[in-house]
Amino acid sequence: MQSCRGEVIAESVPDGRFTREKLDNALEQACDSLGLDARGATLLRFTNNAVYSLAGQPVVVRIVGSRRLRYRAHKTVAVARYFAEHGVPAIELLPDLTQPIEVGEHLVTFWRKVPHADRAPTAADLARLLRRVHALPPPPGIVSWAPLDDVRDRVADAEELDPVHRRFLLDRCAEVDAAIARLEFVLPTALVHGDAHPGNVIVGPDGPVLCDFDSACAGPPEWDLTPLAVGQERFGDPAGRYRMLVDAYGFDVTKWPGFAVLRAARELKLTTSVLPILRSHPDVRAELRRRLDDLRAGRTGTRWARFQ
C-alpha cells in the first residue's frame, strides 16, 4: 500500500517465522516431550503468543511469538508461582515441571486449563483481582515498569515493516517515554499486571482468575486501570464497563492529569503487538495500517477494531 508517507508494510514474503504449520510442529514436539497428546488441539489466540487448548487433557500450552520477547516466558513462570504463594486467584502452571521448555527457537509453557463457568468475566471481576495484585509487594527480581521497551522489541523483531514507519514508531516511543518521565503518579508503586482487561480474566467454577502475566512488573497501578479506559475510547466499548471498573476499584484514571500520556503508551502497545507475527498472520494487516495511519496523523477519535 503506497502513500506519500511511504509503505505501511513492506512487500510480503510468503513464509513467516510463526506460521500455523511451524507452531503446530512446536506444539507437537513440546507435548511429545511430556507425554501429552497434541492431536486436535485448538488454537485459542495468536498475537504475542500462540495459545492452544489440548483436546485430550485439561492443559493449555503457550508458545512465545517473538524472539525478542522470549525472556517474558521466564517472568510469566515466576509471577505465576508468586501469585500461587500469595493466594491470588490466577491460572496455575502444570506442576512438577521445569518451565519454560525450549523447543527449537520457541519457549513453551504448560498450564492447568480452567473449566469455564457459565458467565463472562466483568470489569468488576477484574477490579477485585487487581486490588489483590496491587496489595502485594513486587517480587524480588521483577522488572521495573518500562511500557515501551516491548514496543521497541516488537519493532526490532517485525517480520514486515517499512523503514518510514519503523522510524516513526521509534520516535514516538521516545516522545512518550519523555512524557512518562515527567508524570507524578498518585497511587503507590506495586506489582502490576501490565495488560489488565477482562479478556485476561477467566471465570472458573471457583470464581474469576487472572491469566497472561507477560507484562507484569513493578510499577504504577494507574497503568492497570488504563486498558479499559482506552478500550472505551478506541474500540467503542460500553461506557458502563469502565464505570464498573472505577466503582469496584475506587479510582478513575481518566480524571488523573497523566491519563493522556498513558493512553498514548497503551495505543503504541496495541498497534505493535502483531509486528513479530505479521507475515505469519496476514489477516491483521488492514487493521495495522489503519492504526499506524491514525497515530501518524494524530487522530485520537477514530475507532479501531480488535486484532483477530
Rank of each mutant, 00 (worst) to 15 (best):
P58H: 00
T122H: 10
Q29M: 11
T98D: 14
L295R: 05
R81E: 15
R241Q: 14
L275Q: 10
V61M: 14
L278R: 06
T226K: 10
L183M: 12
A196C: 10
T19G: 10
V79N: 05
R285W: 00
F46I: 04
D24G: 15
A286I: 08
A55W: 06
D283Y: 08
R45K: 14
R306K: 14
L292R: 06
E102Y: 02
Q2R: 12
V133E: 04
C31S: 07
F251Y: 15
R263A: 15
A146Y: 01
F168C: 04
V133K: 02
V51N: 07
Y242H: 15
V103Q: 04
R291T: 10
A50S: 13
L278T: 08
R263F: 07
E233K: 12
P208W: 03
F251S: 13
R306L: 15
A123P: 01
D224H: 11
C217V: 15
L54P: 01
E85N: 01
L245Y: 07
E267W: 02
A181T: 10
H281T: 12
G298P: 08
A26K: 00
E233P: 01
S12P: 02
F110E: 06
A190I: 06
F259T: 08
R5F: 15
L292N: 06
L187F: 04
E287Y: 02
D157I: 05
W223H: 07
G104F: 01
I142Q: 10
D153K: 04
E21G: 09
L130M: 14
G35Q: 03
P115I: 12
L94R: 13
T254E: 06
E160W: 07
L44G: 13
R45P: 02
V186D: 11
P89R: 03
G56Y: 09
I101G: 02
L225M: 02
E175H: 09
